[in-house]
C-alpha cells in the first residue's frame, strides 16, 4: 500500500500534465490540424483521469467469472482472503466498470467530432488558401481594415 501512496501523485500528475500539454498544443500551434491533435490529446487525457479512478489494486477486467473457475482461482491466489472478502464480488476482485463505459463512448464520439473539426479546416483551406493560424488572422485583419476604409 505504501508503494501505491508513492505512485498516486505521480500517475495523477502525469495525467494532468498530459491535459495541460494538450491544451498548450491546442492554444499555441500555428497549424490548425496540429491544434485539433492537441485537442484530441486533451480529450484522451481527461479519459486517463477517469480510468485512473477506476483501477482497483489486484482487480481484473469487469467480465464476471465463475468463482470456482481456474481463472478466478489463479487471480485469487495472489491476494489475501480478507481483501477479497472486503472488496470482491462473489470471490473475485474487479475494477470499476462505470468509467470504462463513459470513456469508451467518449472515444468514438471524439473521433466523430474530430472529423467535424477537420471538415471545417478543409473549408478554411479552400476559403483562405492556408491553414496557418497567423496568416488567417492577418487576412482577416486586412479584410476588416478594407471594410472600414470603404465605410469611411
Amino acid at each position: 500500500m505504501t508503494l501505491a501512496l508513492v505512485l498516486t501523485p505521480y500517475v495523477y500528475g502525469l495525467g494532468f500534465f498530459m491535459m495541460a500539454a494538450g491544451l498548450l498544443i491546442a492554444l499555441t500551434s500555428r497549424h490548425l490540424i496540429k491544434r485539433l491533435i492537441g485537442l484530441g490529446v486533451f480529450q484522451t487525457s481527461a479519459g486517463v483521469f477517469y480510468i485512473l479512478l477506476s483501477k482497483v489494486s489486484g482487480g481484473t477486467a469487469a467480465i464476471r467469472l465463475e468463482a470456482d473457475s481456474p481463472a478466478a482461482e489463479a487471480l485469487a491466489s495472489r491476494l489475501d482472503a480478507a481483501y477479497i472478502a472486503a472488496h470482491g464480488v462473489d470471490g473475485v476482485v474487479y475494477s470499476n466498470p462505470l468509467p470504462h463505459v463513459l470513456i469508451l463512448t467518449a472515444i468514438v464520439v471524439g473521433a466523430a467530432t474530430l472529423a467535424v473539426g477537420l471538415a471545417i479546416i478543409v473549408r478554411i483551406r479552400e476559403t483562405y488558401g492556408t491553414v496557418d493560424f497567423e496568416e488567417i488572422s492577418a487576412l482577416e485583419a486586412r479584410a476588416l481594415r478594407d471594410v472600414r476604409e470603404d465605410e469611411a
Binding site: 500517475v11 483501477k55 489494486s57 482487480g59 472488496h87
Partner: peptide
C-alpha cells in the same frame, strides 16, 4: 484524490 488502486474509493465502492 483517492489513492491509486484503492478499492474503497468513492468512485469504486458504490455505484460501480
Amino acid at each position: 484524490l483517492p489513492v491509486f488502486g484503492d478499492p474503497g474509493s468513492p468512485p469504486s465502492a458504490y455505484v460501480g
